[in-house]
Design a protein around this nucleic acid. Structure first.
Lengths: 115, 115
DNA sequence: TTATAAGGTTTCCGATTGGTAACCTAAAGT
DNA sequence: ACTTTAGGTTACCAATCGGAAACCTTATAA
């Protein structure tokens, strides 16, 4: 007795995979963390380093540049001395907040299970 | 004029980072896709391969094993010949659905912007 | 005049990923 | 006798990732 493969599509068939679209943004190391901290308001480079101690300067720079090029984060150089740079979520970035919140919420539930 | 670093914590301070907890689950390649298709009901190995054509057998196996060990997915071998194996979301896995849905929704919005 | 600050960049390197392709088992169909 | 099927496993390989540490600039403060 051989089970036939159900050739029908799964009920959930994304149209050209929005999942991958979005995960391309969230994918890199520390990306969700950066977005989370920025969701609390604009934040400077050195402040993000304090918020997320394990992130290296190299990776933090890379992430912020990536997010900027994707239109998720804005970069604002203030004419102080030495110049300070403030990062903030763009409108598109704001749209990601529900995702981050959902992730955080599940993270809590997972903790409750493992404890 | 030197800007003082705001030493206060960001308003959003996760308590021992549920973000990382959850991202540890969602992190691997194709993981969100697998969860998405499983959210439509139980699905067999070969069916998932059809659902997600670019995933290799090796990676799909790895993902499913990972998810199983994390209690997100259940594995059920049916006594057919050759044996067929059905994967399904556990209760914990169900809790991830809102996250996946949030990701999909943002994916759509991103598409609208880039078009 | 030397140090410090902010916000990086660059180089080097090892670890982790993920892909390809070959292989495996046992039973059932042809 | 041979092939197909389901669900993998294994070995090998190249690319990518991310961490550590050193370095850079320019203006002000000590």
């Amino acid at each position: 007795m051989v089970l036939p493969v159900r050739k029908n599509k799964s009920p959930n068939t994304p149209h050209e995979c929005p999942l991958s679209q979005c995960m391309a943004i969230l994918g890199g190391a520390w990306t969700p963390n950066v977005l989370w901290y920025l969701s609390g308001g604009p934040r400077r480079f050195s402040e993000l380093q304090i918020d997320i101690p394990p992130v290296s300067a190299k990776v933090l720079t890379t992430r912020l540049r990536d997010l900027e090029s994707k239109g998720v984060v804005s970069r604002n150089v203030k004419p102080t001395s030495p110049p300070s740079v403030e990062y903030a979520l763009t409108d598109l970035g704001q749209e990601l907040i529900p995702v981050i919140e959902a992730i955080v919420e599940v993270g809590h539930k997972i903790k409750l299970r493992t404890e």
